[in-house]
């Protein structure tokens, strides 16, 4: 069961430049105004994780891809995280729309190592993501 929403080519291009040319640190995606396509709404090279979190609106849903860098066993590692941001305070219509469209976007990206469903800021806090990133590279 899916919404049938499509993924725009801009999404793919943005993801490619994050993954391959590492131009972006993160990309934030949303739905187009007509609710028919998923489009990137922001790309950023900002290194500060908190800035990224700040870019996720308090009561609206988004998707994000974040090139997460962390240290494990004193080696630097990178993992691309796919974050579904669906705050509890978002309208139910948005939640439904985003949840049922998520798979289309998620499956267009290869190389996602960590997937996170975030409903409040604690779930997408740096430590929470770090925990997931760490545990997924056991």
């Amino acid at each position: 069961m899916a919404s049938g929403v499509s993924v725009s080519s801009e999404c793919m291009e943005a993801f490619r430049s994050l993954k391959l040319s590492r131009k972006h640190k993160y990309i934030i995606f949303s739905l187009s105004a007509d609710l028919k396509t998923i489009v990137p709404v922001k790309t950023s090279a900002e290194q500060d994780y908190d800035k990224f979190v700040g870019d996720l609106p308090e009561d609206e849903c988004r998707w994000a891809v974040y090139d997460f860098e962390f240290e494990k066993d004193s080696a630097k590692r990178n993992k691309i995280c796919f974050i579904s941001w669906s705050p509890d305070s978002a309208k139910i219509k948005q939640k439904m729309l985003f949840a049922s469209s998520r798979d289309a976007l998620r499956r267009s990206f290869d190389g996602i190592a960590v997937e996170i469903q975030g409903t409040d800021y604690s779930e997408i806090a740096h430590e929470a993501v770090l925990f997931k990133a760490n545990s997924s590279s056991r």
Binding site: M1, S3, G4, L35, K36, M96
Partner: peptide, 16 residues
Amino acid sequence: WLGGSILASLGTFHQL
């Protein structure tokens, strides 16, 4: 019901 209501209201859902 609400979930179905939202889903069925989507223009893109008609493919399904």
